[in-house]
């Protein structure tokens, strides 16, 4: 009970303090932190909880972003209505992509999603869809204004809106992963054969998890598109997918709280590193990945478990 009060107070602080003190650009950066956090949360559900690897979640982010942009630009759909639509679209695409690869080992999913990430900008650029996607040029959409004549700037409103969506998404994720389904997901990650023997339909559970995960990242893409007010194919290169993967690893794959750290990391580190040289962000990411993997060869979860074992051993003496 106390923990949930603490979280409520933290959320309240996160809502009021930046709006009261931050300037437009910094507020935008915080909005993007929330957006990335949701995107990485999708990956964390997939990788951390269920043990599957995706190197292509940038594609779902792109699909979410384009769904929102197309709905807003072509049909004048209100921005908040586009979120559930892109959630459904991305879950559907995720289900389809996940289906073939999930029957096989983790590496195949990593490969397939990597291929998806490499291919997606080409699809977005393609002439056949140009009337909707705007081709290479992309689409410009309107930044939403605060409703009900609230005395907020567009940036402030957008931040609060994203935070609101984020809180809902996190609450749902916590609910999902701590319940029965979450237990099943973990069982599949840790002991696939045993889980199957206990009556868990492996392929179905894995595919559904993949769909949920794609949905999260897709909603993040929608929010991101609204925040940036612009979508274009080249913002969704394979590098975006890798960025999410780095965020996931930096935050610790199996921890839901860690996704926020990962999001802060991928929002601010490239900006800082970019000042050094154009090559620096990639190098920093690469080094972080390898260092994390070397320090925690069994993944973040294994690292925690090892530490725990050592503690217990030390206490036992």
């Amino acid at each position: 009970m106390r923990a949930s009060w603490l979280i409520a107070i933290l959320v309240l602080i996160a809502a009021i303090w930046p709006v009261a003190t931050f300037s437009g650009y910094h507020l935008f950066q915080l909005t993007m932190v929330v957006v990335y956090a949701i995107a990485i949360l999708g990956l964390a559900i997939l990788t951390g909880i269920n043990g599957q690897i995706s190197l292509g979640h940038g594609a779902f982010y792109a699909i979410g972003a384009y769904t929102t942009a197309i709905l807003m630009a072509s049909w004048d759909v209100p921005y908040w209505v586009t979120l559930p639509v892109s959630a459904v679209v991305c879950a559907g695409v995720g289900f389809l992509v996940g289906l073939p690869a999930l029957r096989l080992g983790g590496l195949y999913l990593a490969l397939t999603t990597f291929a998806l990430a490499v291919a997606i900008p080409q699809v977005l650029k393609h002439k056949a869809f140009e009337t909707w996607t705007g081709g290479v040029q992309g689409l410009v959409i309107d930044k939403p204004e605060a409703p009900f004549d609230l005395p907020l700037t567009s940036d402030q409103w957008l931040y609060l809106f994203s935070l609101f969506v984020g809180v809902i998404m996190y609450a749902l994720a916590v609910n999902l992963t701590q319940g029965r389904i979450g237990r099943a997901m973990r069982a599949v990650r840790d002991h696939a054969v045993a889980a199957e023997a206990m009556g868990i339909n492996l392929a179905m559970l894995k595919t559904r998890t993949f769909a949920v995960s794609a949905m999260y990242t897709g909603v993040a893409g929608s929010l991101g598109a609204i925040a940036v007010a612009f979508v274009a194919p080249d913002s969704f290169s394979v590098f975006l997918s890798i960025t999410f993967f780095v965020g996931l690893v930096a935050g610790g794959a199996a921890s839901i709280g860690g996704t926020i750290i990962g999001a802060i990391f991928i929002e601010f580190v490239p900006n800082l590193a970019d000042k050094v040289s154009k090559a620096a962000p990639g190098a920093v990411y690469g080094v972080i990945l390898i260092v994390m993997m070397f320090l925690m060869p069994k993944g973040a979860g294994g690292f925690v478990a090892d530490m725990w074992r050592k503690l217990v051993k030390a206490g036992g003496r």
Partner: peptide, 10 residues
């Protein structure tokens, strides 16, 4: 697998 994918992507 996660570790090796991480190292290779790195």
């Amino acid at each position: 697998v996660l570790t090796s994918v991480g190292v290779f992507v790195g």
